[in-house]
Computed example of a mutant assay.
Amino acid sequence: MTSLSELTLPDHTQLPDSDGKFVKNLQEHPQSILLTDSITPVLQQLHPDGNYCIGQDAGIYWRLTDPPEKGAEAPDWFYVPNVPPTLNGKMRRSYVLWKEYVAPLIVIEFVSGDGSEERDKTTPSQGEPGKFWVYEQAIRVPYYAIYEVEKARVEVYHLVDNTYQLMTPNEREHYLIKPMGVELGIWQGVYQNAELPWLRWWDAQGNLLLTGEERAEVERQKRKKIVEKLRHLSSEQLQSLGIDPEMLD
């Protein structure tokens, strides 16, 4: 009889990193990039050592099955604190719970159908475990967000006493993800040339967290305003400030 000490469990290099399914719509990829790009400065502050992991449509293995991929859920977006994104110098192919023992802090699902898959509470005794049950009872993810672009809404569940409780949004219609110090909500606007209700982050004061491109544009507009003000000064005034008037041309 094989003992637990002799049993070798597969790691991320030995497990499938795809279930062969297509991404269900064209918004999913840019939506994931938007979430990751805008939250990165916050996560870098929370983890100056770089020990955090973001998954985008990547598998979370929570049980051993045959075939292996049936033992995984692949959230559209998830974040795991205090776990590095690489192992032995290589990016993770998947996230394997029995190798890390650290659950994601938040998982986000983008609804493509009617939302029944994302809200499926089927238990193992009833059949194939539903996605909602897996996140709540098996992986035990503290925050679970379900984003429905067609309805321009998001609902967020918080794990309280081992049970998901539907959170109530604040006065801004955002949901506070307290351990991250940010809020999650819907933003109507243009991203990657598409006018849609996008899922986005805000800080705890209600300020929208910008992408790198948006931050760069804010800086360009600031510089433009400064240059316009300087152009109203005389050459003598500019020189007194140590500014060469020709630099403003």
Score class of each variant (00 low, 15 high):
173 E>V: 00
22 F>S: 14
245 P>Y: 00
217 E>S: 10
93 R>L: 12
113 G>V: 07
140 R>K: 15
214 E>C: 04
38 S>A: 15
35 L>V: 02
27 Q>D: 07
88 N>M: 09
169 P>E: 03
101 Y>K: 11
124 P>N: 10
152 A>G: 08
220 R>S: 08
61 Y>H: 04
134 V>Q: 02
195 E>V: 03
71 G>Y: 06
43 L>N: 08
89 G>V: 07
143 Y>M: 10
27 Q>I: 00
86 T>G: 01
165 Q>I: 11
148 E>P: 01
19 D>C: 09
2 T>W: 09
222 K>P: 01
134 V>K: 01
246 E>D: 12
226 I>E: 14
59 G>E: 00
74 A>I: 00
234 S>K: 02
224 K>S: 14
96 V>T: 09
147 Y>K: 04
50 G>I: 01
83 V>F: 04
150 E>S: 11
222 K>N: 05
214 E>G: 07
175 Y>A: 02
233 L>G: 00
116 S>H: 08
242 G>T: 06
120 D>W: 04
5 S>I: 03
76 D>V: 03
217 E>L: 11
49 D>A: 11
56 Q>C: 12
124 P>R: 01
20 G>P: 09
42 V>E: 12
127 G>Q: 06
89 G>W: 06
110 F>C: 00
80 V>Q: 04
150 E>W: 00
14 Q>V: 03
81 P>K: 13
70 K>H: 13
46 L>K: 13
209 L>S: 00
207 N>T: 13
110 F>G: 00
237 Q>E: 15
52 Y>F: 15
183 E>R: 03
38 S>K: 05
180 M>L: 15
161 D>A: 12
234 S>Y: 12
84 P>R: 08
249 D>N: 14
141 V>R: 10
229 K>D: 05
102 V>G: 07
169 P>A: 02
93 R>F: 06
200 R>S: 03
17 D>R: 06
187 W>V: 01
222 K>Q: 13
212 G>L: 10
226 I>G: 06
93 R>Q: 11
21 K>E: 03
239 Q>E: 14
136 E>R: 13
43 L>Y: 07
241 L>Q: 10
200 R>W: 05
56 Q>S: 15
2 T>F: 12
104 P>H: 10
153 R>T: 13
234 S>W: 08
97 L>A: 06
